[in-house]
């Protein structure tokens, strides 16, 4: 397989996942605002999650709901629309590789977002739009799982998807930590709601309740989202998937080592101690660096020197 084609498969996987994650993130935070009307930092924290505060500040003066939502939905670079557009572009240039219906779906998603995105700027149209985007993304993911051979092309899509997923999970955890570290913003009574919200933004609430029997508390939530091997959005599970896909590719040594390293770091951490010493934020920073290292290794090993400038810019 051509290195360029492999690279486009990888980014196709990442951008579809990113679009879905953005939709999920906006959706849950819109709900959270209704529960915690007095907490001011919620909208700003969403900009932090996407790792693009400087881009935001260049374009907007005020951090408020309207600006943040507009930015997250429509920005040229960091938004849901941009992710969908790039997913389509990567699919369009590899149409002979992916199933024909997959291109049709991603094209449909692109057209839907283009036509309807402005309806989501106001709260009353937002839920419907975001739910539709998530559904279309699920359709696409299911279609690929159902119609594509588990070959090199599909492996790259899965690597992209799972790295993006792991990345988003760590970002959401990180924002939870930031709130906890600022006692003036989150009153103790809201802590429970905050962690529930973290779980919900990853559709993890139900699974958490089934697998963790204690009440919702910071330690268990962090442990579940970092280390669970069965929940699809837990970092541990995602790394396992990436490992499995990479192991099937040629010249995988360096990448597999990078993945193993990240897995060991996560397996070895003491969540309670990190929470008590307020070091969780630093730890998550390290995990994100490890994820970036895996991305670099994937790129250098299989995609050669092909750096697609626009896409590199949006890698955190």
């Amino acid at each position: 397989m051509l290195a360029r084609v492999g690279e486009r498969m990888y980014w196709f996987g990442r951008y579809v996942e990113r679009a879905e994650n953005m939709a999920r993130l906006i959706s849950v935070n819109t709900n959270l605002v209704l529960d915690l009307p007095k907490v001011k930092h919620i909208w700003g924290s969403m900009i932090d999650i996407t790792g693009s505060p400087s881009e935001f500040n260049q374009r907007y003066q005020r951090v408020d709901e309207r600006n943040v939502i507009k930015f997250l939905l429509e920005d040229d670079n960091a938004s849901l629309s941009a992710a969908v557009r790039r997913a389509r572009e990567n699919a369009r240039t590899t149409r002979e590789i992916i199933p024909a219906e997959a291109f049709e779906r991603v094209n449909e998603l692109h057209l839907y977002v283009k036509k309807n995105v402005d309806k989501a700027l106001r709260r009353e149209g937002r839920h419907r739009f975001l739910a539709d985007v998530m559904n279309l993304c699920h359709q696409l993911t299911g279609l690929l799982a159902g119609n594509m051979s588990g070959d090199t092309a599909y492996n790259f899509i899965k690597i992209g998807r799972n790295l993006e997923r792991a990345d988003m999970t760590t970002r959401i955890l990180d924002v939870g930590c930031l709130h906890l570290m600022q006692p003036d913003t989150v009153v103790a009574e809201y802590e429970n709601i905050l962690w529930m919200n973290v779980l919900r933004s990853l559709t993890a609430y139900q699974m958490y309740r089934q697998h963790v029997h204690d009440r919702v508390n910071g330690e268990d939530v962090v442990d579940f989202l970092l280390r669970d091997m069965k929940f699809p959005r837990a970092v541990g599970h995602c790394l396992g998937e990436v490992y499995e896909c990479c192991a099937q590719l040629p010249r995988q040594d360096a990448t597999v080592r990078a993945i193993s390293h990240a897995q060991r770091v996560i397996a070895g951490c003491d969540v309670a101690a990190l929470l008590n010493s307020a070091k969780l934020h630093e730890f998550i920073d390290d995990v994100q660096l490890d994820l970036a290292e895996i991305h670099r290794s994937v790129r250098d090993t299989w995609f050669g020197a092909q750096v697609v400038v626009e896409q590199e810019q949006t890698q955190a």
Partner: peptide
């Protein structure tokens, strides 16, 4: 961009295998 001419003046394509 997928092709490169090596020092041996042969043409190579960049694949995931190298």
């Amino acid at each position: 961009q997928d092709l490169v001419v090596g020092d041996d003046d042969c043409v190579y394509m960049k694949t995931v295998e190298g």
